[in-house]
Design a protein around this nucleic acid. Structure first.
Lengths: 204, 204, 204, 204
DNA sequence: AATGAATGAGCATTCATTCAT
DNA sequence: AATGAATGAATGCTCATTCAT
């Protein structure tokens, strides 16, 4: 067999280097030179594997979204009911266990701000949000249904839970010292459970 | 004789122009030239009134934090009990009524990302967060106390509510089409109220 | 009598402020704003009293040259012969006594460098040099004549002595720690006296 | 494959261009654009090879000091005794022969003025001065010893000779028309020789 | 695939000078 | 005389991108 080109490995290496550099310097100040150094590559090589810096960023958005999905799937594996699956999801996003990555979180916050101004990043970010929203709707609907509660508010509840997660990332990245430690996952679950408990039953 | 100083007016004008420009282009791409044009001033004049671009940004952080405080005070004026004050706070931050400003929200999101990398911005951002946390602790403690509930979780609850707000800003700015309209304020209040209702009473 | 306009005083104040600022920051970095602050005046006022920054510099050259002349005249007053007059001159230029001014010396060094590139400064500098050379020729000729020595080399000797002084200013300003203290005036006199002593008598 | 580095050549080219430009315009007015044009390079490339303009200046200080050392070594090669070595030194610094470079001299004068205000330049300038002083002390001590003269005044004599040289550069650059031609080297040697001749013998 | 020099547009900032008051 | 805001050209420096090797 012929020797495999190492492009895929190189691309992953570059994407990872962008993530690390962005977490530290933001997107604009994450220069091609800094990224290349972090990846232990030369500047020219980055443009051999990616057409532009923006393209690396888009690849990073995909990579982070994919990693988040994998983290949920790994935890959801052991879940046996709707509530456990929801808890697995929240743990996957907000938990401090294995897979928690301050760099990835900071990079995601920076991506969120870039989405405000770059339409292509916004599109990718929105796609990730839509995917999350769909998953959340499904998980919350299942939890509501399991308790025979109305699903009328599921959309808003999903949005609030997603906002809670995004805000947690923001605060963890920009004001870590002002926040209590490890509060996010357990409190998010409590908020949702108590909300669901207080929802009116189906058909009312 | 001498001309009368107009610095304060000019500074406010420039800060506003930075906010508008940042909401559209982000911080790095909000160039001095763009800001000056938006403020209908010449580039040199911006550096006459501010030492550096970073200084304008810090002034903007103060301005936004101050405006948020004013908005709360205006609404809290009519509140007669703890729950109404809390509702006034949530409405001031997340409501769609008068004072809601998509530009200010987008600028705040961009500031949050800049706080990840610029230590001076981070300090100012953290100060704003600390102030919010203190206010939230006070409001939530009062609501809990009014219902004779334990205040053991007030810190975490405050953090969660603040995260919910920051995340709402983020999603409203970067993925507005993926989010339901007007969900944030009412749902945030419901989440908090139901959480408080389900809290154990004092002394348990 | 009508109140005297304070222009002359203001001009002197500004020239002095330029000298101080130049000694610290060089000519280019001695901005109008810095000079104005040092003189406790406002920037606009500097251009009321001088047409341009270059004009202040020219006034400073005159002022420094004039001050040097005064210092010599004050010391020469007591001299009773050619050698004492020469010693008075050397002391006036290189001595550490009253009137020695590190700021003035540093400013003169900076002026010397500006003379390399600005033709108007060069003209003023050259005029000062020519005046010095004339005085030196006179003093040295008198000393040589007093000892009945040939004055064939007086031009070159004057040039060398002037160079020694200018170089002393340079080294005192830019490498003070590398130079012995107080060496300049006595050694300069010794060099000149021994040179003259070894000169052939007139008519040879 | 990879291109071969040409940085050393480019750096030398840039340093030379700074020297030429500085000799004509001074340091501040020797803009990156002017230097680049003189070197027939693009402005961006200067910052690829040097971190900053100040760094080019430091490289120039080293280059000029090195060239001066080489010029002395080349001439000292033929010297057979202390006096000839001293004469070789003076000729190397002040002589009009091969290697005399009005541009380098003017650049050195400008550097001397920059040393007044830029601490890094001052450090480099002082180092060059210290090296010169050490060499001068050695040369003068040898000459004094060869004539069995006291070396008590060698430090001050070295300082005076160095000052004479620096001042000669200054006057040659800023007031060439006011100075006699070719006076410097022969007169400097005469001054030193007559001084030494008149020194008291060792042990007195 | 890989290197690193080269380009050139763009940026924040500085500053002498002007001018309305 | 005096003020201080305003101007606009100039400058050092950055950086994504290109390209010869």
């Amino acid at each position: 067999m012929s020797r495999k080109p190492n492009s895929e490995q190189r691309r992953a290496q570059i994407v990872q280097a962008l993530m690390d550099t962005m977490a530290e310097h933001g997107y604009e100040k994450a220069t091609i030179l800094l990224i290349a150094r972090r990846a232990q590559l030369t500047p020219g090589l980055l443009h051999y594997h990616f057409h532009s810096k923006a393209e690396i960023l888009l690849a990073l958005v995909q990579a982070l979204a994919g990693a988040a999905r994998q983290r949920y799937l790994a935890l959801a594996h052991k879940a046996t009911n709707a509530d456990e699956r929801l808890a697995a999801y929240v743990e996957a996003r907000l938990g401090l266990g294995e897979g928690a990555d301050a760099g990835a979180v900071a990079a995601w916050v920076v991506i969120g701000a870039e989405a405000v101004r770059q339409s292509e990043v916004r599109a990718a970010y929105q796609h990730a949000v839509d995917t999350e929203m769909a998953l959340l709707r499904e998980l919350l609907s299942a939890s509501l249904a399991a308790q025979r509660k109305s699903t009328a508010n599921v959309e808003a509840l999903a949005a609030a839970l997603l906002a809670l997660m995004e805000g947690t990332f923001q605060l963890a990245s920009a004001a870590p010292d002002s926040m209590p430690v490890g509060y996010a996952a357990p409190l998010a679950m409590q908020l949702v459970r108590r909300f669901i408990d207080a929802e009116p039953p189906t058909g009312c």
